[in-house]
């Protein structure tokens, strides 16, 4: 997604990225990045917390207006309400990233893609 942001910026379209994977976005380098220190899946605020989501979105709009150059990173300033154990556990052997049903679904999608490709449909 950072690459698409870069492509748009290079072609005259300003962007702001709202994301949780700070190292990945900053490694690539984007014009404007609102960093939300939340688990993958909730970059725009906790599910159901409308006030927080509203603030995150406003911060992204503020960043669009106020940034003066590339690599403008702003931290949204929120901490995950249920504690930060997720940071220790994500992508560890102790807690596999995908459960069995997600792995199975991933296989189904991959096989279907290969089939469509073999049939020349995509």
């Amino acid at each position: 997604m950072s690459l698409i942001s870069r492509y748009l910026e290079a072609h005259g379209v300003p962007t702001v990225v709202i994301g949780t994977a700070r190292d990945i976005v900053e490694h690539c380098g984007v014009a404007r990045f609102l960093f939300v220190d939340y688990p993958l899946g909730s970059p725009c605020g906790e599910p159901g917390n409308v006030a927080e989501q509203r603030d995150v979105f406003q911060q992204a709009l503020d960043l669009l207006e106020q940034s003066e150059g590339p690599r403008s990173t702003r931290e949204a300033g929120y901490r995950w309400g249920k504690g930060e154990d997720w940071k220790r556990l994500i992508f560890t052997e102790e807690q596999p990233f995908q459960d069995e049903s997600a792995k199975a679904e991933w296989e189904v999608r991959n096989n279907e893609y290969r089939r469509l490709k073999a049939e020349g449909k995509i």
């Binding site: 950072s2 990225v17 994301g19 993958l40």
Partner: peptide
């Protein structure tokens, strides 16, 4: 579109 808000999951 003039500007884009981009949200990676």
């Amino acid at each position: 579109v003039d500007v884009v808000v981009i949200v990676p999951i």
